[in-house]
């Protein structure tokens, strides 16, 4: 009985992960300017990845592989957080220089 329960839970988590990816991609298209897109994309995709990883955990062959998947998720979190910060800083820098040109 518990096996089908776990499978149901896995299915639910995977579907939720997919929904968050969908929201992230939707945010990439619907939001007006770059900074809001960065916000939507980074958060939604990382959460989606978290749910996908949680959904995959029960069917992973061993605890070592489970730890590896969790580490991959953590690295993806750190990676996209820094990347989003860098891109946001660049957008602000280019906006600042463009404003200066308009004023000059």
């Amino acid at each position: 009985m518990s096996d089908s329960l776990i499978m149901l839970l896995q299915a639910l988590l995977l579907v939720i992960g997919c929904l968050f990816f969908l929201v992230g991609t939707l945010g990439l298209f619907r939001l007006p300017d770059t900074l809001t897109r960065i916000h939507a994309l980074t958060k939604a995709d990382n959460l989606g990845l978290g749910f996908v990883v949680l959904g995959l955990l029960p069917s992973v062959p061993g605890p070592a592989t489970a730890a590896k998947i969790l580490l991959i998720w953590l690295i993806a979190l750190a990676a996209s957080a820094t990347a989003a910060h860098l891109v946001a800083r660049t957008v602000r820098a280019t906006d600042a220089s463009r404003d200066r040109e308009e004023r000059a």
């Binding site: 991609t25 995709d45 990845l49 990883v53 995959l56 993806a76 990676a79």
Partner: peptide, 26 residues
């Protein structure tokens, strides 16, 4: 419109790609 948006899409590729690869690995 701006190069920063194109960089965002590459970030989207990264996170979606990682999820896709993990699901396929399973």
């Amino acid at each position: 419109p701006e190069p920063a948006d194109r960089m965002l899409a590459s970030q989207l590729f990264a996170s979606t790609g990682v999820a896709l690869l993990l699901v396929l690995a399973e």
